[in-house]
């Protein structure tokens, strides 16, 4: 469970079926169970108007099979995040007002999918989210502007510019990333050991 810290740090809910004629559900492997749970609470015909888009490490794995058993009208599994985000943008270009968007899984999945939905013209407050899985963060280095996916340590060494970054709770929806700020900018001789904290 992600606890609220500062007001820019996103928090997540539990997916519940919403009124609407079409439902677009996006999940990674960790989030697929949340989709299964949502279907269990939804009306019996929910699957007929549901489109599921997943990003999975294993196209023939258990998570993919579980989503398949839900019998959604459309099920698209993508092998990586960029492929999924591209597919999502394509689906949104065809969608109309009234479609309900559900995002489930790790924060990098939720954040990056949300960014694509916002760019398609939907207010972020209308997007349903549920966090499942690891607490690994997507981080932007505020100095070199490079991104790192799956950051688990505090601090983290920037993969691009090499600075030691303190990972703040300050989060940008537009960048789908937490902010990384040099932890020893004042005195670079101060070395702060990294600890695994975002698991």
């Amino acid at each position: 469970m992600i606890e609220p810290t500062i007001l820019s740090r996103p928090t997540y809910g539990t997916l519940e079926p919403r009124p609407g004629r079409a439902h677009l559900l996006i999940a990674d492997d960790a989030g697929s169970a949340a989709i299964v749970d949502l279907f269990a609470r939804a009306p019996a015909d929910f699957h007929e108007s549901a489109t599921i888009l997943s990003v999975t490490k294993d196209l023939s794995g258990d998570e993919a099979a579980a989503l398949h058993r839900l019998s959604p009208a459309t099920l698209t599994a993508c092998p990586d995040m960029p492929a999924m985000l591209n597919t999502l943008a394509g689906l949104l270009a065809e969608a109309g007002m009234g479609v309900q968007i559900y995002l489930a899984g790790t924060e990098p999945l939720i954040g990056q999918a949300m960014r694509v939905v916002i760019e398609a013209g939907i207010d972020h407050s209308a997007i349903a989210t549920e966090h499942r899985g690891s607490l690994a963060r997507r981080v932007q280095c505020v100095h070199c502007k490079g991104f790192m996916d799956e950051v688990t340590t505090q601090p983290v060494t920037c993969a691009h510019c090499g600075l030691s970054l303190f990972v703040r709770d300050h989060y940008s929806r537009r960048l789908a990333a937490f902010q990384g700020v040099c932890i020893n900018a004042e005195d670079q001789s101060e070395i702060v050991p990294a600890e695994e904290v975002f698991r």
């Binding site: 820019s8 300050h170 940008s172």
Partner: peptide, 17 residues
Amino acid sequence: WSLDFDIGMNFFEWHAP
């Protein structure tokens, strides 16, 4: 504070820290 990071945030979010 960074405009590039905070752009798009609401009043409470950009003052969050």
